[in-house]
């Protein structure tokens, strides 16, 4: 793989990664949100795969394959199972922020990500480092998704997106995360999804829906 191809593929991957995040903000259908998350997982896995192939190093390739199986396969399937069968449960209910404003805020957050990562890019002008703002933007967008969505499942998606962003930042800055660290982080995420799935089920039984605002009743 030549340097030009490597840079091109890496930029494309980072772009796809960010685009998936923006599309998740745009869509309201829970099923398609989860599909988009799977595509984001593919883009995430492509980062270490590209790096590994370019450097001819098997370590990142294995990490990439693990990430691919978990983030594009296992986690979305688990989430799809948690999507309710009732019609009302399959869409995000009235959003706290409407779609147009959401997209504008997303744009603002992306710019903010570019602004705050300037010191990191200044350290190293490599192609991977220059893609860091995209990963950072995904972290901020994920936080926004968690703040603005009502359904428990959207929260789970936001959480996974946050973790995707953190993992992508780690891949891009360090140029290869040790397998043991990646396995630990993946394990954590897997458990978090299990817990969130359980919580969704409990909420559905207790309140008849998964709107997080109903949790207010638990205070006091």
């Amino acid at each position: 793989m030549s340097l030009a191809t490597y840079t091109g593929v890496l930029d494309l991957t980072a772009g796809a990664f960010l685009l998936a995040a923006v599309l998740i903000v745009w869509r309201r259908e829970l099923r398609s949100i989860v599909h988009l998350l799977a595509w984001q997982g593919v883009a995430l896995a492509a980062i270490p795969l590209t790096e590994g192939l370019y450097e001819g190093n098997p370590g990142p390739v294995i990490v990439g394959l693990v990430v691919l199986v978990l983030r594009a396969g296992v986690l979305p399937v688990l989430l799809l199972r948690a999507v309710g069968t009732a019609d009302a449960e399959r869409r995000e209910s009235t959003p706290l922020v409407n779609t147009t404003s959401s997209l504008l805020i997303t744009a603002a957050l992306t710019m903010l990500a570019y602004a705050v990562t300037r010191p990191i890019i200044a350290l190293d002008q490599a192609a991977a480092t220059r893609a860091v703002p995209a990963a950072f933007a995904v972290i901020l967008i994920a936080l926004f998704v968690m703040v603005s969505r009502r359904r428990a499942l959207s929260q789970a998606v936001g959480f996974l997106m946050l973790d995707n962003g953190i993992t992508a930042t780690a891949f891009l800055i360090t140029g290869g995360v040790p397998l043991i660290v990646e396995l630990g982080a993946s394990m954590d995420v897997l458990f978090a999804v299990f817990v969130l799935g359980l919580l969704t089920g409990h909420m559905r039984r207790a309140f008849g829906g998964t709107d997080l605002d109903q949790l207010r009743e638990l205070r006091d």
């Binding site: 936080l143 703040v147 009502r150 929260q155 605002d213 949790l215 207010r216 638990l218 205070r219």
Partner: peptide, 9 residues
């Protein structure tokens, strides 16, 4: 702490 998860987030 008003109980809203969104506010905490």
């Amino acid at each position: 702490h008003n109980g809203s998860v969104h506010l905490y987030l």
